[in-house]
C-alpha cells in the first residue's frame, strides 16, 4: 500500500506470450509515430479488438511511467485534475499569563492533485481507458492540455494557477463505438485533437496466435476454435460478432476440461453453445439465441 501522499504509477510489461504479429506491429508503429509527432492517439473499436492491451503496449514502448484513468459516468473535472480533500486544522492556546487566555483557530482545506495533474507535471504517459464512458464535459480539462500544453488549475489550489505540461507528457485514449450501451458521444473538440485509429477484429493469424498463447492449446486446436468463430461471424446470425475473447474462453475451458476440440465431444459442443451464443446477443432474446445455436450446431457437425 502506498504511503499517504505518494502516488502510484504503472509500468506496463508484456506477458511472456504476448503476441506481436505484423498486424499488431503495424498498429503500434503508426501509433508511436503519431505520438513522436506530438499527437495523442485514440484507439476506437468494438469490444474485444484489443484497444486497452494495445494502449498498454504502446505506453510500454515509450518507457515512461504510466497513469491510467478509466472513464465513468460519475467522473468530473476534479477526478482528473484534483480537488479539495480533507481539512487541516491549527489551534493555538496561549495562557502564558494566567489572567489572559488567547486562542487562535484556523481551518483550511487540503488540495490533492489527481492523475492528470500528476501526469502533466512529471511527464508521464496517460492512458484514458474508455473515455467516452465519462460525460463529455468532464473531459474539458484535456482540451487545453492537448492543444496549449497547459493545465488550468482551480483557484482553490494554493500556488500556481496554471501548470505547464511537461514536454514528455503523452496521452493514449480508448473508446467503444457510440452505439454501445453506457457510452456517451465523444466531445467533438477533444476528438479533433486526437489521431483516431479505428480497430477492427484481429486477422486470423493474430487470433490463432493469441488464442494459443492465452489458452495454452496446440496450434491446430487454436486454429480449429478460431475457424468456428470466423464461420459464425460470417453466417450473419449474430447481433454482435464474437471476438477473440470468445476464442480464449473456449480454449481455456476446453483445456481445463481436457476435452478434444471437435464437435463430436459433447462437452466442447456445450462450451461453444454457452460461450458463443451468449456473446452474440445483447438482450438474450430466445429467438436470437436459438438462431445462433442452430448455426453453431451446424458448424459443430461439420467440425
Amino acid at each position: 500500500m502506498a504511503p499517504e501522499g505518494v502516488a502510484t504509477v504503472l509500468r506496463p510489461s508484456p506477458l511472456p506470450g504476448f503476441v506481436e504479429t505484423p498486424f499488431v506491429q503495424s498498429i503500434v508503429e503508426r501509433a508511436l509515430t503519431y505520438m513522436a509527432a506530438g499527437f495523442p492517439v485514440h484507439f476506437r473499436g468494438a469490444s474485444g479488438t484489443g484497444k486497452t492491451t494495445l494502449a498498454m503496449h504502446v505506453a510500454s514502448k515509450l518507457d515512461r511511467p504510466v497513469v491510467m484513468v478509466h472513464g465513468d459516468e460519475e467522473f468530473s473535472t476534479s477526478n482528473l485534475v484534483g480537488g479539495e480533500n480533507g481539512y487541516r486544522t491549527r489551534k493555538v492556546i496561549d495562557n502564558f499569563i494566567h489572567t489572559v487566555l488567547k486562542t487562535e483557530e484556523d481551518v483550511s482545506r487540503s488540495w490533492v492533485d489527481n492523475r492528470l495533474t500528476i501526469a502533466c507535471r512529471y511527464g508521464f504517459t496517460l492512458i484514458y481507458d474508455e473515455f467516452t464512458r465519462s460525460r463529455p464535459e468532464a473531459n474539458n480539462a484535456l482540451l487545453s492540455v492537448l492543444q496549449e500544453r497547459m493545465l488550468d488549475l482551480s483557484a482553490a489550489r494554493d500556488g500556481e494557477s496554471y501548470l505547464r505540461v511537461h514536454p514528455q507528457f503523452t496521452a493514449i485514449f480508448t473508446s467503444n463505438p457510440e452505439e454501445y450501451a453506457g457510452v456517451y458521444k465523444s466531445q467533438d473538440a477533444l476528438r479533433d485533437r486526437l489521431v483516431t485509429l479505428d480497430l477492427e477484429l484481429f486477422d486470423e493469424e493474430t487470433e490463432v496466435a493469441i488464442t494459443q498463447a492465452k489458452s495454452g492449446l496446440e496450434q491446430a486446436d487454436a486454429e480449429r476454435i478460431v475457424r468456428i468463430v470466423h464461420q459464425l461471424r460470417a453466417s450473419g446470425a449474430c447481433e454482435f460478432l464474437p471476438t477473440v475473447r470468445g476464442c480464449i474462453m473456449l480454449g481455456r475451458a476446453a483445456r481445463v476440461a481436457g476435452c478434444s476440440i471437435a464437435g463430436a465431444d459433447p462437452r466442447f459442443r456445450s462450451f461453444c453453445l454457452d460461450i458463443l451464443a451468449s456473446e452474440s446477443s445483447r438482450g438474450g432474446s430466445a429467438s436470437q439465441t436459438s438462431r445462433v445455436k442452430t448455426v453453431l450446431n451446424d458448424l459443430m457437425d461439420r467440425c
Partner: peptide, 19 residues
C-alpha cells in the same frame, strides 16, 4: 517520447508493474 529519467521527484510516487 522515448527515454529517460525518473528525476529527483521519483520519491513522490511508487511504481506498480502491470502485466
Amino acid at each position: 517520447v522515448t527515454g529517460d529519467e525518473q528525476g529527483p521527484s521519483s520519491h513522490l510516487w511508487q511504481t506498480m508493474t502491470v502485466k
